[in-house]
Amino acid sequence: MKAKFLIPLLIFLVISGFLGVGLVLDPKEVPSPLVGKPAPALSLPALDNPERIVTTEEFLGKPWMLNVWATWCVSCRAEHRLLVEMAKHTDIPIVGLDYKDDADDAKQWLRQLGDPYAVTAFDEKGRIAIDWGVYGTPETYLIDKEGIIRFKQIGPIDAKVMQEKILPLVKQLQEEAA
C-alpha cells in the first residue's frame, strides 16, 4: 500500500531526469557525419584573386584548418579575434571559406579586422558549403595530413574551445605529420 504513493513520485523523477538531460543537450549541435571522412573537394576562386583556384589537394600532406565565415554573420566577428591570434602563434594554415557573401564587403572586413587566413576561398552561391555540410556559420574543420576531417566546430570558437580542443588537436596533427 505504501509503495503505491511512491509511483507518481517515481514517474516525476523519471520525467525530470529526461527533461534535465534535454536541457543540457544543444539541439543545434548536429553530429557531423563528415568527421573521420575525407574532406570534400573545394575548388573555388580565391577572394582576393578570382583567377587563383583554391583546391583541397594543395593542402594534402600537412594538417590545415578550414573556417567558414561571412560578413553578415554576427558570431563570426566575435570569433575572428581568436583566429587572428591563432594565426600569429601557430603555423597551421587557416583557410577561409567566405560563405554567400559580397566580395567587396569581405575584403573590407579582412582589412579592418585582420586577415588570419593563408587564403580565403570565395563561395558566393554556397554550393561548396553544402558539400561540407555547412548549415550555420561560423563552422570550423581541422583536416589531417591525409586529408581526413578530424574535428568540426559548429558555431563560434571561444577561448575555451580554442584552448581545450583546437590547439591540442593542432599540436597532435602536426606531430602526426612530422
Binding site: V30, P31, P33, G133
Partner: peptide
C-alpha cells in the same frame, strides 16, 4: 543529404 548532414 545524409552524407553531408547526417541522419538528423
Amino acid at each position: 543529404m545524409v552524407a553531408r548532414y547526417g541522419e538528423f
